[in-house]
Write a protein that binds this DNA or RNA. Sequence first.
DNA 1: CTACATTCTCCAGTAACTGTAGAATCAAGA
DNA 2: TCTTGATTCTACAGTTACTGGAGAATGTAG
Lengths: 140, 140
Amino acid sequence: MGRDVGLPIGALASRTGTKVNTIRYYEDIGLLPHAARTASGRRSYGPEDVRRLAFIRSARGLGFSIDEIRSLTALAAGPEQDCAEVRALAARHLLDVDERLERMARLRAELARIVQLCEGGRIADCRVIEAIEATLPSAV
Amino acid sequence: MGRDVGLPIGALASRTGTKVNTIRYYEDIGLLPHAARTASGRRSYGPEDVRRLAFIRSARGLGFSIDEIRSLTALAAGPEQDCAEVRALAARHLLDVDERLERMARLRAELARIVQLCEGGRIADCRVIEAIEATLPSAV
DNA sequence: CTACATTCTCCAGTAACTGTAGAATCAAGA
DNA sequence: TCTTGATTCTACAGTTACTGGAGAATGTAG
């Protein structure tokens, strides 16, 4: 009867900046696998769970939906997959990420410009929305 | 009685990739100002509304919450604001955006690597989660 | 003047959490 | 050992940010 060396749910939560309830929710919807349980029925997690959850939280924070994350994590499902399929999926995500990167970079540039402007004491043209719009990709 | 030259809600919706109901929702919660109305009570929009909504949708897609967007668009509220306050707000958002940019860039690198790997016909080490985790900022 | 599309308000449903209630378990100190 | 506060458990209700539908009014093309 080796003692349980896994992390309890609270430790996983604090390590990944996730709420305890959110972790249980992810397990419910199958985004995380069923956690191992201790003798008394408490969830117990290992380093792999920390990695997976950290990835999920990061991707969520970047605006990916649960379904998109399911499809992203499917890329890591192992060597038994069809290579062409995985490649197509990854390539599609790559295009998407590139677009987000561009928009994020434009937002960054505009914020930096505002900080600069306000530094100089002037504020008259802190027109963040117009400035960002002016650089939008497909002239929305 | 000049005729109404504004866009109806459906046109604003298609121009910004937003659902009609979502536009009305944004008005309800005060994220968009009350729209002008035609004689018969229909909403009518101008170019400024297109810009503002395009910005909101872009920011939402990048993972910013409605409250964060309220605070971002506040930067565009005009010259009657306190300069130091605006600067501080913009600087805070800038740090946040930089962090997101970093994470986005790492995700991009990993996706590119997978596409490369799969290109060569091998797939054994398409370990997207582990690879991304390995480059996470604060060793979560 | 039809007939079909668009808009209106109101309200119910969904996605992704977030919080709470009540009971069980754990871990540290007296 | 006993107790006392912190964690965990399940279950369910509430929140945020939409999304969709019903039924009525209005717009527009033929």
